[in-house]
């Protein structure tokens, strides 16, 4: 860090950084090289927005908060899913930087992909169904495991890295890690009376496709342990509901009562 007083003006150095950004649309595209002034502490999104403001105003990128809270700026840096606002340029010293869109979703333009599929999945998940009217009496120890999945900022990087989606394109039959974390937060809510194991096993959830490679956990910018704390407990719940004879019977009766 520099030791002089800096107010207002940014203490830009003369150095520049070269950044390769994917430019193109559904028809095709290529990486384009840009040289951007290097500023101390800059993140990849800073560089992309510099290009947009000074070199190529039609460069498409999503962003909002610039503080890793909103999850808008998911993309890939050197092929790895990353939040562009949280990826420091100085982490790549001596390396080439290649910024590209997420691969698991259809490309719209440049760094922007069509993520609307995620919202369809969200809509298909049976919603929170409270046992009683609020205010709830719930103790810290009853809810503490919910804080983790609720940290999710919906950047969809876990969806992007998941090979079930990325390589096998199982979008119509698989909800993906983001929504397993979501379902965990619903299923483990002490006041919830909804049922989602059928959704997970026979419905759109498709949790059986996941073979626990932990890629989702590795890329999560919120450090949510999706595999161990969401997916595995949900898989256990499915096993419990489907292969325990008493629960199997309950499920049949309940299903009939709900007219399913």
């Amino acid at each position: 860090m520099e030791s002089s007083q800096h107010r207002g003006a940014s203490p830009e150095t003369q150095k520049t950084v070269r950044i390769n950004i994917y430019r193109g649309d559904a028809e095709g595209g290529e990486f384009v090289e840009y040289d951007v002034p290097l500023v101390e502490g800059m993140v990849v999104l800073d560089a992309v927005l510099y290009v947009q403001a000074h070199i190529s105003p039609d460069l498409a990128v999503r962003w909002n908060c610039k503080a890793a809270h909103c999850g808008s700026c998911g993309g890939e840096v050197n092929g790895r899913p990353k939040l562009l606002c949280k990826t420091r340029v100085d982490d790549y010293e001596g390396e080439e930087i290649r910024v590209s869109p997420m691969r698991a979703f259809p490309l719209i333009k440049d760094l922007v992909t069509d993520v609307s599929w995620n919202y369809e999945v969200a809509r298909s998940i049976p919603e929170f169904k409270p046992a009683e009217k609020a205010p709830f009496t719930m103790y810290e120890e009853d809810v503490e495991r919910l804080y983790e999945p609720k940290r999710c900022i919906e950047c969809f990087l876990c969806q992007d890295v998941c090979h079930v989606l990325r390589s096998h394109h199982k979008h119509p039959a698989f909800a993906g890690p983001r929504f397993f974390a979501k379902i965990q937060s619903l299923e483990m809510h002490p006041m919830d009376t909804g049922h989602r194991t059928e959704y997970l096993k026979e419905g759109r959830g498709g949790i059986g496709f996941c073979n626990i490679t932990k890629c989702c956990t590795e890329v999560c910018p919120e450090h949510i342990n999706i595999t161990d704390n969401s997916i595995i407990p949900l898989k256990e719940r499915v096993v419990g509901d489907y292969y325990d004879p008493a629960k199997w019977l309950m499920r049949k009766i309940r299903g009939r009562r709900n007219g399913e």
């Binding site: 919603e127 929170f128 409270p130 009217k133 609020a134 205010p135 709830f136 009496t137 719930m138 103790y139 810290e140 809810v143 919910l146 804080y147 609720k150 937060s185 619903l186 809510h189 919830d192």
Partner: peptide, 19 residues
């Protein structure tokens, strides 16, 4: 706020189990 809680919103708890 209670309505949010009823819709699944989660808040930190007091020792006696309230928001």
């Amino acid at each position: 706020v209670y309505e949010l809680e009823e819709w699944g919103g989660l808040f930190d708890r007091t020792p006696d189990g309230r928001i």
